[in-house]
C-alpha cells in the first residue's frame, strides 16, 4: 500500500532537476475529506500503474476559487485564481489532471483569461485514454462482472463540459451491467452540492436534492453508484445512508473502481 503512495511534489521534482509529465491537481475535497482522500489515492495508484511521472503541488495548492465564484465572490475567486496561476506558471506546468469536475471546469475554462492556459483533463478522461492506449491492465473476471452499476453525471463534467462518454466507456471495462438512471447525461439531475450549496443549509423546501437523486439511483437496482466528483460522492453517500441501504449499495468513484481491479 505504501509503495504506490510515493507521490512527489512539484517542489521536490524541481529540487532534483526533473520535471513531471503531468500535474495532478488534487483539489480541496481530495486533500482534506477523509472519504475523498481514498479517491485521490486511487488516482495516484492508477498513475503509478501506468508509470506516469506526475507531481502534486502539495502545500502550494490552493482552492481554485470555484465555490467562492459560484457564491458570487468574484473578488476572492480571482485572487485565488491569480495566486494559483502564479504557482503553476512558475513551474511551467503544461498538462493538468484534476480529481474533481469543479477544479477541472475552473482551471480549464476560467483560468485562461486570467493568464493560465493549460491542457486540463478530468481523471475520467485520462483514465479512459490510458485504457484505450492499453496502458492499464485489469484483472480478468473482476468483482464487478455481471453486477449492476449506474453512473451519476456530475454537472460540471457532463452538462458543464460535455464529458459524458469517458466515464461510461471506462466503466464498461469492468464487464459490469451499466444501467442508466431515468435522468442521465444532459438530463441528469444535480446531486445538490454545486454552486456553493455544499457549504450551506438548503433553502426551505419539501426534500433535499440528494434524496431526490438517490431515489433515481436506487430505482435502477444497481449495487454500485459510480460518480466522478468528490462532492457528488458525499451527497450520494448521504442519500444511501438516509435510505439505510448501506448494506446493499455502495457509492464509488470511477477511479476507485478501476484502481481496485488493476492487474499488478
Amino acid at each position: 500500500m505504501n509503495q504506490q503512495l510515493q507521490v512527489r511534489t512539484m517542489a521536490e521534482f524541481m529540487a532534483s532537476g526533473e520535471s513531471p509529465e503531468i500535474l495532478f491537481w488534487v483539489g480541496c475535497a481530495g486533500s482534506f475529506d477523509d472519504r475523498a482522500k481514498k479517491i485521490t489515492a486511487s488516482i495516484a495508484k492508477i498513475l503509478h500503474h501506468c508509470q506516469i511521472s506526475f507531481a502534486i503541488l502539495g502545500e502550494e495548492e490552493s482552492c481554485t476559487g470555484d465555490p467562492a465564484k459560484r457564491a458570487g465572490n468574484e473578488l476572492l475567486f480571482q485572487m485565488m485564481a491569480m495566486q494559483n496561476i502564479q504557482v503553476l506558471n512558475a513551474y511551467e506546468v503544461k498538462k493538468i489532471v484534476t480529481g474533481c469536475p469543479h477544479c477541472f471546469n475552473t482551471i480549464k475554462n476560467e483560468y485562461p483569461q486570467l493568464g493560465g492556459s493549460y491542457d486540463v483533463v478530468h481523471h475520467s478522461e485520462l483514465i479512459n485514454s490510458l485504457i484505450r492506449e492499453g496502458r492499464i491492465q485489469l484483472k480478468d473476471g473482476g468483482e464487478f462482472q455481471g453486477k449492476k452499476i449506474t453512473f451519476h453525471d456530475p454537472c460540471y463534467l457532463g452538462r458543464g463540459n460535455n464529458v459524458y462518454e469517458a466515464p461510461r466507456e471506462l466503466l464498461s471495462e469492468l464487464d459490469a451491467d451499466l444501467v442508466e438512471m431515468k435522468r442521465s447525461r444532459a438530463k441528469g439531475l444535480c446531486c445538490g452540492a454545486g454552486g456553493a450549496q455544499m457549504f450551506k443549509e438548503a433553502e426551505p423546501g419539501n426534500k433535499e436534492v440528494n434524496i431526490e437523486r438517490t431515489e433515481d439511483a436506487l430505482e435502477t437496482k444497481a449495487s454500485v453508484i459510480a460518480t466522478g466528483c468528490p462532492f457528488c460522492n458525499t451527497m450520494m453517500t448521504d442519500g444511501i445512508k438516509h435510505f439505510e441501504k448501506e448494506a446493499e449499495v455502495v457509492v464509488k468513484d470511477i477511479a476507485e473502481l478501476i484502481a481496485g481491479q488493476l492487474n499488478s
Partner: peptide, 16 residues
C-alpha cells in the same frame, strides 16, 4: 486556501 478550516500543511497528508 481551502473552503474548510484545514491548514495548507496538511494538503498532502493523504499520502500517509
Amino acid at each position: 486556501g481551502a473552503p474548510w478550516a484545514f491548514p495548507a500543511s496538511e494538503r498532502a497528508a493523504w499520502r500517509n
